[in-house]
Structures are given as structure tokens and as C-alpha cells.
Design a protein around this nucleic acid. Structure first.
Lengths: 154, 154
DNA sequence: TGGGAGTTGACAACCGGTTGCCAATTGATG
DNA sequence: CATCAATTGGCAACCGGTTGTCAACTCCCA
């Protein structure tokens, strides 16, 4: 009943689960010297890569999580002085968030650390394999999004 | 500073995060008609694929999680009548777990459902791409395990 | 035979995410 | 202008995983 390809895909899926877990563990180790966690780092990234300050729901959307999830981390980052809130002219209740000076500095450091880490990890991987992996992951991800109907509906 | 390959790898990593999340969501949808969750399904799989009944730590190891994590799910599966515990001749405190008749039936149904789902999802994916993706994921996963020093130390 | 090291279960606390709910604000519509 | 739907924050509960702790059991070795 199972196709050869379906079996291969099942193997890939199990490898995704395993790799995902290890990436998260390693990511935490990578950022812990900066007093951060993977989740907090991802929030900083969303804000850093944006042209303008973002609201909590926008940050959640950029990260692919719910607004409540992003709000938990935002609150902590503000307390730690890496993020600051600014009045939102468009919505009195929903402030916008930007990196503080310290947030920018830490994010830049982290970015360099991550670059070195990725360089090291990429050694021995073939460019064509990486591209193929990206194609597989993107196609699977796209199909699952459509079938789960979670977003981008219209 | 960043290599081309490192950039490609970063893209793959982000795709892994996204795909992982969607796989879990879709998995839950897939198994919810059976009154299960992805985590519970994975426990059933570990037991079903084993020749002999397994202890809680063995199930955790097979799933790549801690024994405490597996014990949470095992407890629930026993309560739901899909798993049964048997005395462990080798350890009085640590029972072995096997599928009940009902557990076997549900797992077999689930396996057919998953096969159909994987067949569908595999359409349009090239065999070579799948193999390449597996290579990338396995190598990354292996390197992260070694560098994080989580297991298999000697 | 004894004792110490490792395994295991049970429990509690935490983390990062989710859902559900409610109140305040916003914006569009009649 | 009034009203109603959608967005948003805040809170609480839950889920699946983690770590940490402690006591009971098992095993190995002197």
C-alpha cells in the first residue's frame, strides 16, 4: 500500500522532528551567554528585520505563533531592557516595539555568533543537497498550510 | 562574513521550524478522530514497532524524549485502554507496556490513514530531492547531537 | 556479603506554545 | 451619530516537553 516515495517522505519527516529538537537545544546554548532563549532571540529578529516598530500581533505573525505567545516574550524583553514600547498613533491600546540601544548591540553580536555557527555546520553539506532540502521542506510546508487552512486565506 | 552555503543552511533551518510546526498540527488533526494526539500516537508507534513490550524509559528513548515525558503519555494511554502494563521480571518497580487489543486495532487504522496521507503528500516530490533532504537533515542532526553532547558519548 | 553507583517512578516546577474568555478600543456601516 | 464586527491586551487553563529532587530498586565490584 505504501509507495516507495511515501516511505522516503516518512523518513524525512522523522528526521525533521529529531533535527528540530536538536536545533532548539543548540540554539538555546548559543544564545544563553547573552541571557536569552531561542524564543526571545526570534522576537528580537522579527523586530530587527523590520523597517518600522511592530505591534505584538505583528511580531506574532512574523514568528508564526499566536499574539499571546509573542506577548509573553515581549513582556520579558521589555523588562530586560532589550525592547522598548512606543505609543502607537493608530491604536491607543496596542503599543509598537523597537530595539533599545542595548537590544541592537546584543542582536548584532548574536548575528555574528550565528553566522560563525552556520558556517561551521554547513561544512560538508553539498549546495545541491541544501537546495533540494529547501525544495522538499517548502513544498511540504506549503501543502500542510493549505490543507490545515491556518492562514493566508484571502 | 557569511558563506553562501551558510545562508542556504539558515534558510533550510527556518524551513525546518516552520514545517515542524505544521506537521504537528496536521498530525493532531489526522489522529483526533481516533481520540488521540500526536504524542500519544508516537508512543503507540514505539510500542507497536518493538518486538517485545517496553519499559517507560525505553519508550522515551525510542521517541527521543525524556522518561518523564513518555511516562505522562503512557499513563494516559493506559487509562484509555490502549496500552497495558505487565510485570517486568527484570525490575519490580518498572513495568513493561504492550498494546491492548483495542490499541492494536486503532494503531493499525492509524497506520493506514498515515500511509494514505504520506502518499498524497509525496506527490510532486522527486525521489532524489527526498534523498538529499534526508542526507542534509541526518548530517545536521548528527552534528548537533555530538556538539551538544546529549548522548552516545562512549 | 556489603556498599555504592546507576536506573526508575513519582511528583513538582518551569518553559514555550496553545485555546478560551472578557473588556477596551477601533473602524465601518446604516 | 449609533451600532456592530474585528482587533487587541490581559488573564487563566491547558498541552507536551524539560529539569530537579527524592526514595526505591538493581547491579556490579571489592
Amino acid at each position: 500500500m505504501r509507495t516507495h516515495k511515501a516511505d522516503l517522505l516518512t523518513g524525512v519527516i522523522l528526521a525533521i522532528f529529531r533535527t528540530n529538537g536538536r536545533l532548539l537545544s543548540n540554539g538555546d546554548v548559543l544564545v544563553s551567554p547573552f541571557g536569552l532563549t531561542s524564543a526571545r532571540w526570534q522576537v528580537l529578529g522579527a523586530v530587527a528585520l523590520s523597517d518600522a516598530p511592530l505591534s505584538a500581533p505583528q511580531i506574532g505573525a512574523a514568528m508564526g505563533i499566536t499574539r499571546q505567545g509573542s506577548q509573553k516574550q515581549i513582556k520579558l524583553l521589555v523588562e530586560e531592557g532589550l525592547l522598548e514600547s512606543r505609543p502607537n498613533p493608530a491604536n491607543r491600546r496596542s503599543p509598537l516595539y523597537a530595539l533599545t540601544k542595548r537590544g541592537r548591540r546584543i542582536y548584532a553580536d548574536l548575528d555574528r555568533t550565528q553566522a560563525r555557527w552556520a558556517d561551521q555546520l554547513a561544512k560538508g553539506l553539498a549546495v545541491e543537497d541544501l537546495a533540494a532540502a529547501k525544495r522538499v521542506l517548502d513544498l511540504v510546508s506549503e501543502r500542510l498550510e493549505v490543507s490545515s487552512g491556518r492562514a493566508a486565506r484571502s
